[in-house]
Design a protein around this nucleic acid. Structure first.
Length: 441
RNA sequence: GCCGACAUAGCUUAGUUGGUGGAGCGGCGGACUGUUAAUCCGCAGGUCGCAGGUUCGAGUCCUGCUGUCGGCGCCA
């Protein structure tokens, strides 16, 4: 057990009192009589001053030979100092707990980090398990934790029920090409792409539900926005339409930004993020634009685009240039979206859907909308698309027994982390990223 | 699936028109200091991704393969 934390020492909470620290050697330098060990734990780093005539020859020489990332236990006096750290520890006793073998020194060196600079080299990806303990990654993981916490608190404060769907599934949500197929006792199963269809099944029971769960997409995407395994925050709400769902989407994203300002402003600044920007994301309304207007804007900018096309990333990016905050795109043409989107009763060429596009080129972070909720409409839509009915019988049953208006959205948690942290790549936000070319370590 | 780059020590890299591969960091040995990515001196460490080819001679030129990175499409 630990009794003292470095974060408290550097905050001055322990000045002039005895502390017992446990952590890892971040840096070490010194001479025959005096040694400075920069000690790291999960809460920060602090300089520890070790004098030969205080700790004795044996302890001093042990520390002298201890390599970076050796784990140690230190006793000493925390003191304020006018040197650059503000606070340091005058060590009275030090013990190596887990040494590092000099024939295999810690491989993540300054030079390995220097070129990476946010991007990630093959070497750092291969040594991800060790890269996790570096400053930048630790900071990202703390921000990530707060994002997850914010999602839970947003929904729970509004009486949503957390609900879990299976990860092995038999059918697709989107087109089948992006499913991971897995052998399943002589049959085929797939890894889920979305919680949505199973959430709709529980909608008449729970009415307001959400989850944070992994989703899997076998896309050979090679972009800074894609993972094959990503964390998907999804919600489903009964008796609600596109508007209400969209209100929750904007509300959730603002709440995440606000939570980061409250809990992780130091971490955001250490990544070079401008807090004014996050404040703007936390307090602004997000504008809404219909698909048709987006097409007109694109045409006015001289972009080649035709009505009915889905908007790809290059076009989204041009649209987001006009906004300093996330914005919604709504009412896509029916032909560009799958059957579960409900056609707009006021103009059935469109569906009641929305995407939320993050600014700064981070792309789509939410996709959602109102579901096709009556039996006759869903059968008609499935037929129109030529989709086989059989795998969706359970989904259609939801409409056969007391269908009600409902909708929901899915939010890409890793993308939100990347955007708010200002990461160069979505990989930076997840401990062990999975993409089409990497499943290790 | 498509397009474009790259591959030299544990890491980051230099390597000229083809002529026996250098450095910084890290490690080891030593010196020295309330040091700040400490500094200084020395040592070890390389099948130049793999396989062919051209050449008297290939890290360098050519072909193929493998791996990685970046971009597009698809999407969260």
């Amino acid at each position: 057990m630990k009794t003292h934390w470095i974060g408290d020492v550097i905050s001055g909470n322990h000045d002039q009192s005895e502390v017992h620290l446990k952590g890892w050697i971040h840096r070490s330098r010194g001479s025959k009589r005096l040694r400075f060990v920069v000690l790291r734990d999960s809460t920060g780093t602090v300089q520890c001053v070790i004098k030969r005539d205080v700790v004795g020859d044996d302890a001093f020489e042990t520390v002298e030979s201890a390599l970076i990332e050796s784990s140690v236990e230190i006793s000493g006096m925390a003191i304020p100092t006018d040197r650059e750290h503000g606070h340091e520890v005058q060590v009275s006793d030090i013990r190596i707990i887990g040494p590092v073998d000099p024939s295999r020194p810690f491989p993540i060196t300054e030079s390995a980090m220097a070129e990476a600079d946010g991007g990630e080299t093959e070497f750092l990806l291969d040594n991800r398990h060790l890269y996790l303990r570096t400053g930048r990654m630790t900071t990202m993981l703390k921000i990530r934790s707060s994002v997850f916490g914010a999602i839970h608190s947003y929904f729970r404060e509004r009486d949503f029920i957390e609900y879990q769907a299976p990860n092995f599934v038999a059918g697709a949500v989107e087109g089948g090409s992006t499913l991971f197929e897995v052998p399943y006792f002589g049959r085929k199963a797939f890894l889920t792409q979305s919680w949505q269809l199973y959430a709709e099944a529980a909608m008449p029971a729970l009415e307001r539900l959400y989850t944070i769960a992994p989703s899997f997409r076998a896309e050979k995407s090679r972009t800074r926005r894609h993972l094959t395994e990503f964390w998907h925050a999804e919600m489903e709400i009964a008796w609600s339409g596109n508007e209400e769902v969209m209100n929750h989407g904007g509300g959730l994203v603002r709440h995440i930004a606000r939570t980061l300002l409250n809990e992780r402003s130091d971490e955001l600044e250490s990544l070079g993020r401008d807090l004014k920007l996050i404040e703007r994301y936390a307090s602004s309304d997000y504008p809404r634009m219909r698909y048709d207007e987006a097409i007109e804007r694109l045409k006015a900018k001289g972009v080649q685009v035709e009505w009915g096309q889905d908007l790809d990333y290059s076009k989204e990016k041009i649209l987001t240039e006009d906004f300093e905050v996330p914005h919604f795109l709504t009412h896509y043409p029916k032909i560009a979206k799958p059957f579960y989107h409900r056609p707009d009763p006021e103009d059935p060429r469109y569906v009641l859907c929305h995407d939320l596009l993050a600014p700064e080129g981070y792309g789509e972070i939410i996709g959602g909308g109102e579901r096709t909720w009556s039996e006759s409409e869903i059968l008609e839509r499935i037929d129109e698309e030529g989709t086989p009915v059989e795998p969706y019988e359970f989904y259609i049953d939801v409409r056969r027994y007391g269908g009600v208006p409902h909708g929901g959205f899915g939010l890409g948690v890793d993308r939100v982390c990347a955007w708010l942290a200002g990461a160069d790549h979505i990989r930076e936000t997840i401990p062990f990223p999975r993409d089409s070319r990497r499943v290790t370590p």
